[in-house]
Amino acid sequence: MVTKFLKPRDAAEALSMLASVKGAVPLAGGTFLLSSQFRDEPMTVVSVAGILPSGVSRTGNTVEIGAGATFQDIIDSPDAPAVLRKACLGMADRNIRNRATAAGNAAAGKSCASLPPVFLTAEASFEFAGGNAPLPAESWLASPSGLITRIKLVFDPERLYGYERWSRTACDVSVLTAAASWRLSGGVVKDLRIACGGLSSHPRRFPELESLFEGKPLPKRSDIEAAVSPFLSPIDDVRGSAAFKRLRASILVADAIMNAEAQP
């Protein structure tokens, strides 16, 4: 329950407010923070909507997403690569897409968040208010801190990018997500990146999976599934048993690799 609403004039003031009020949290779209699951928790929020960039642009291989860009902004942008739009469309509820922001999706700290697996396979880095040095998405997701202002992703034209998710119904939250990017060189897979959500405390890359296929000819789908399955350790919960999630995530990883496409 929000007990105090603070409206800074700019990012600098937002940082100051966040620093001066104990427990204050930045509020962007609010689709996560304002949902009823936090109804009983007194909260001071610092509204960052309108003071953070919200555009989507592309310069060469680099796509820049303003932290305040909503999922729908990204979908509507001609500069957004298809794999990113697909990940945004995974949030099938348009009402939510109209509010949920790219940075908020990362900052919510949810294991099954939609976008971070794509960030992780597209060399994403986060920029911050206050002059802090940019951080690779992987570092930040492991230890979040600071107010994100921009997300930069690199889409190498030589590489292929794939993204898959599983949810119980279309508008469900993502239960499991997987993204992959790689290139084919000399008939073998090179520089494979695999990132998954829903399998650990936060979305992360899985180097133990990447090394299975690195430098080898592209395997069959079923071989990928069989190979990755032993390395996945999901938990039992209301959304599925660990055994099912392991099987399902193996399929997602295989499909993310095999369905990957160039992002012109």
Binding site: F5, G30, L34, S35, R39, R94, N95, I96, N98, R99
Partner: peptide, 24 residues
């Protein structure tokens, strides 16, 4: 109850359809 899951509280806010239960 403010979960943002049903859409019955929808309004058009600045020309976009949103759930008013999860907007202050």
């Amino acid at each position: 109850d403010g979960e943002g899951a049903c859409g019955l509280c929808a309004v058009i806010l600045d020309r976009k359809l949103v759930n008013s239960c999860i907007i202050l």
